[in-house]
């Protein structure tokens, strides 16, 4: 497993060159944006169960066959497995976001995931849809742009109350990890 710093070390070692000013610039950026990154990880972990259940619910609303007899989220045992897997995927994404490198997600979560799902008969398209809903709500939590949605009297949404700033780079990075999961399943 690598993080942003050890990734730089491994690629410099391949050239047997020391790490000089050029490579250090992006690492200095990681350091300078460090608190934003920790806030972003916190935004995901603190709302993890909400993000996961919302994504699985959304996936089922769009495809109610999943919870009818013969569907892949029927009975509760399989629904529970689905929620568990959603949480696992989100957890590895939060690790990758903390480390600033996708290797932990690749090695420990995505490697062989598609083959496992195919063997178990899990529908990949529905899984991908749930992950993309998790991406949308995580983005909203990191950016603090979550809203009432289509229901104007909805009060069950939450703001993290952190100081607002430009988190576009971090949101893009987090989004790339979600996309990585989706393309690994595709």
């Amino acid at each position: 497993m690598l993080d942003a710093f050890s990734r730089a070390v491994v690629s410099a070692d391949a050239k047997t060159a020391p790490i000089g000013s050029g490579e250090l610039a992006s690492l200095r950026n990681y350091v300078a944006e460090g608190n934003k990154r920790l806030d972003a990880v916190n935004a995901i972990t603190s709302n993890a169960s909400c993000i996961v259940s919302d994504a699985v619910t959304g996936m089922i609303c769009e495809n109610t066959g999943l919870i009818q007899a013969g569907g892949n989220c029927y009975p509760n045992r399989r629904m529970a497995a689905c929620l568990r897997d959603g949480e696992i995927v989100l957890r590895y994404i939060s690790y990758a976001l903390l480390a600033g490198d996708a290797s932990v997600l690749d090695d420990r979560c995505l490697n062989g995931l598609k083959e496992t799902y195919v063997a178990l008969g899990v529908p990949l398209q529905s899984t991908g849809r749930a992950v993309s809903i998790m991406k949308a709500s995580s983005t909203a939590h990191i950016n603090e742009t979550n809203t009432t949605g289509t229901n104007p009297v909805e009060s069950r949404f939450r703001k993290m109350e952190t100081v607002k700033g430009d988190c576009s780079a971090l949101v893009a990075e987090a989004g790339s990890y979600f996309d990585r999961v989706i393309s690994a399943l595709g």
């Binding site: 690598l2 690790y95 480390a99 600033g100």
Partner: peptide, 21 residues
């Protein structure tokens, strides 16, 4: 490669939990 972040992530993963405070 051992570093503070990878150590933290390894420990969290072994316990199966999200990164804590």
């Amino acid at each position: 490669m051992k570093s503070v972040v990878t150590t933290v992530v390894t420990a969290a993963d072994a316990a199966g939990r999200f990164p804590s405070q």
